[in-house]
């Protein structure tokens, strides 16, 4: 078990390194530089370069960056003078997470419930009904959904505000928008797994032994159907937590995603690299956690000794 964790951690570290390197060099391949939008004196530009160490050879910059990274120092933003990348991330990530976490919870709850119900009444009208909605939810892109929801609920009905970030109520529409697609995917995943599990011998035996349907579904069937969906949830959680760019854009939320796009356009090397690293980190951690969760649900992995 420990071996697995260590190996996994090692692998993750390797991935981080590759991502950092790729980002580093890709950014510098881009035409333009961080200060191109401002019309400044070439002398001042030189000073700025020196200040941020951009005049050093690339290899040296890379080494410097890595050493700073080891101290969790992601550097200063080149576009927002005086603010470090860490600061920016610390400010904007909570916004993204405030939308992401509830969306994740909602998607999981909706997805599992709908999937289970759909599998129980397989091929009858609840199944078709749920499946139809799930396929629809899968097909409507979230930018379409977000705008649509705003149109109906904010503009026409006036229930929710159009695009603000002040009270919890403001978050309802963004969370809903973000949660629909993952909910649809999870519904379909769980449904497929549950249908398969419900045909297994141990479920049939459980029913023949007189166990009630609720117990059979929840205690015997569901834990066997979950692992597949859980594996999928890892990357999904990361995507949701770090905020969807589009949703943040539509609802004018000051989250992490917004910064990412603009910083690429600004050639703000440090910010881009910092956000990339942060995002990769979240992705690796959540994948790892969900894999561990799936691992622990399967008794066969936990006890490796036979009788």
């Amino acid at each position: 078990m420990l071996g697995y964790v260590l190996r996994r951690a090692g692998f993750n570290l390797g991935v981080m390194l590759v991502v950092v390197t790729l980002t580093f060099f890709l950014m510098r391949l881009l035409p333009g530089d961080p200060f191109m939008s401002q019309r400044i004196n070439p002398d001042i530009k030189e000073n700025l370069y020196a200040k941020y160490g951009l005049d050093q050879p690339a290899a040296r910059q890379y080494a410097d960056y890595l050493t700073a990274l080891a101290r969790f120092d992601l550097g200063e933003s080149l576009k927002y003078p005086g603010r470090t990348v860490n600061q920016i991330i610390a400010e904007s990530f909570p916004v993204s997470a405030a939308v992401g976490f509830p969306a994740l919870a909602l998607a999981a709850f909706l997805g599992v419930t709908a999937g289970v119900l759909s599998a129980i009444w397989h091929n009858r009208w609840p199944d078709r009904f749920i499946l139809a909605w799930a396929t629809l939810g899968l097909s409507i892109p979230n930018f379409a959904l977000g705008a649509g929801l705003i149109y109906i609920f904010a503009l026409k009905l006036g229930i929710f505000p159009v695009a603000m970030y002040e009270k919890p109520l403001d978050l309802v529409l963004p969370v809903l928008t973000l949660a629909i697609w993952p909910a649809a995917v999870i519904t379909r995943l769980i449904r497929t797994e549950m249908i398969e599990v419900l045909q297994r011998d141990y479920i049939i035996s459980a029913r023949v032994r007189g166990l009630g349907p609720a117990a059979v579904v929840l205690r015997h069937a569901l834990p066997n159907a979950l692992p597949a969906a859980i594996h999928y949830t890892g990357p999904l959680a990361a995507t949701l937590l770090t905020g969807s760019f589009i949703v943040e854009k539509i609802f004018a939320l000051p989250g992490l995603g917004q910064y990412y796009i603009t910083s690429i356009g600004n050639r703000d090397y440090n910010l881009v690299a910092g956000i990339t690293i942060f995002y990769t980190f979240i992705l690796l951690v959540s994948t790892f956690l969900t894999d561990l969760l799936a691992f622990s649900l399967n008794p066969r992995c936990r006890y490796r000794n036979g009788s």
């Binding site: 459980a206 066997n224 008794p299």
Partner: peptide
């Protein structure tokens, strides 16, 4: 009472 054909398959693996 029911005694199934494949005994191991008839016990829920996660419990």
């Amino acid at each position: 009472g029911y005694i199934p054909q494949n005994p191991r398959e008839c016990l829920t693996p996660t419990l």
